[in-house]
Amino acid sequence: MTVAAVVLAANLLVGVLRVSRGPDVRDRIAGLILLSTTGTAVLLVLAHTVDEPALRVVAAVAVALAPVIVVSLVVHERGRP
């Protein structure tokens, strides 16, 4: 589990770089999707490791909110109110 957590944390760093550097909005949206799925995986690995069920709930909330963030960014990119 430790190796999985380290690999996922490295993946999070790559996602943060993609979101912060761009080069355009589509790349940033892809980076946000990467961050949401990888962040959820990190939370699930931690929930299993420390046996904390509340982290599973937080992971479920993150999964539920990720599409909302992506849709709002796409709508913003297209210029619709």
Rank of each mutant, 00 (worst) to 15 (best):
A60S: 12
A4V: 03
V74Q: 14
L46M: 13
V68S: 04
L46K: 05
P53N: 01
I29T: 01
V57W: 10
T37G: 08
V14S: 13
G79C: 01
V3G: 00
L17Q: 04
A9I: 12
A10N: 01
V19T: 05
A60N: 08
V42E: 02
T37Y: 07
R56G: 02
V74Y: 15
L65G: 13
I69H: 08
L8H: 12
S72P: 02
V75F: 12
T37E: 09
V14L: 15
D51F: 11
L44P: 04
V19P: 10
A9G: 15
T38K: 06
I29A: 01
A4I: 03
I29V: 10
V50N: 02
L32Y: 13
R21S: 11
A54Q: 09
V58C: 07
L34W: 09
T49M: 14
V70N: 04
L35E: 06
T37K: 04
R18W: 12
V3E: 10
I69D: 09
S36P: 04
D51G: 02
T38A: 12
A62T: 14
A10R: 00
A54L: 15
R21A: 11
V63S: 06
L13R: 08
L32W: 13
H76M: 04
T2Y: 04
L12K: 04
L65R: 14
D51R: 13
G39L: 00
R80N: 05
N11T: 06
V63W: 07
G31M: 05
P67R: 07
G79I: 00
G39H: 02
H76N: 08
V74P: 04
V16L: 15
